[in-house]
């Protein structure tokens, strides 16, 4: 049963794998451009499995900053995962034990999380880990290829690769916003708040990682007040 779930996860994860490959390719190329070894870039991708956090981490390493700064940067940029993990834990249900949860936590990236939450059937750890494994293969493989080929790749190609990440987000959010009115509101609110944090003085002094967390919390809280969800939908 669990094996079947794992297989379903693998199939669902293939598009993410391909998308991750290209984004990670950009990461690998950038890491090498900043003086890291190929092996270091691969190790970072294999142990972190996160896009924004890794790109920010590169900056910290390149600056030779203190370890505390690295921890703080990751905390701020990746704190959205805490919210996602909470949501994921609720969706998995109380019957799923600690061991399986610790394993699922490894793969809780933006896209794998979105895949898991978008699943029509009951979400199992098998499905989630299956999708996560394929995604991770794309992420680590892409990093290795990017690190190997990166030095010869022109900037224009690297820029284009970095936009793939946003393309993936768009592909996940827009169809949901189209189906559900409250989701549309959640999207619009987050979009407006996010713009405020970039274009309004004082607010634009907030770090981008922190801004993402604040936008998420504000938009989701307003939607939850206006459009509360019944048990069946949330579970």
């Amino acid at each position: 049963m669990q094996l079947k779930e794992y297989g379903a996860g693998i199939r669902a994860g293939v598009p993410v794998c391909v998308g991750y490959f290209s984004v990670a390719f950009g990461f690998g190329a950038m890491a090498v451009a900043q003086g890291l070894g190929i092996w270091h870039a691969v190790l970072i991708s294999a142990t972190n499995l996160t896009s924004a956090g890794q790109f920010a981490g590169l900056t910290v390493i390149a600056a030779g900053a203190a370890i505390v700064e690295m921890i703080l940067t990751q905390l701020v940029i990746n704190s959205r995962y805490a919210l996602m993990s909470l949501a994921l834990g609720q969706r998995l249900g109380p019957s799923v034990g600690t061991g399986k949860r610790l394993l699922a936590a490894v793969f809780n990236t933006d896209e794998v999380f979105a895949l898991g939450m978008a699943r029509q059937e009951k979400l199992s750890t098998g499905f989630f880990v299956g999708a996560g494994t394929v995604a991770a293969i794309g992420w680590v493989g892409g990093t290795a290829m990017g690190a190997l080929a990166g030095s010869v790749l022109p900037l224009s190609v690297r820029t284009a690769l970095s936009v793939m990440l946003y393309g993936m987000f768009i592909a996940i959010v827009v169809p949901q916003a189209r189906e559900e009115k409250p989701m549309l509101l959640s999207m619009v609110l987050a979009l407006v708040f996010s713009c405020l944090f970039v274009w309004v003085p004082v607010l634009n002094g907030v770090s981008s990682g922190m801004a993402i967390v604040l936008c998420t919390v504000a938009a989701a809280a307003i939607c939850a007040l206006i459009f509360p969800v019944e048990q069946e939908v949330a579970q």
Binding site: L83, A114, I172, M183, A190, C215, A219, A221, V229
Partner: peptide, 13 residues
């Protein structure tokens, strides 16, 4: 409900 809206809001931001 809050957690239900988190993914969309976060990816959009």
């Amino acid at each position: 409900s809050f957690l239900h809206y988190v993914p969309t809001a976060c990816l959009t931001a």
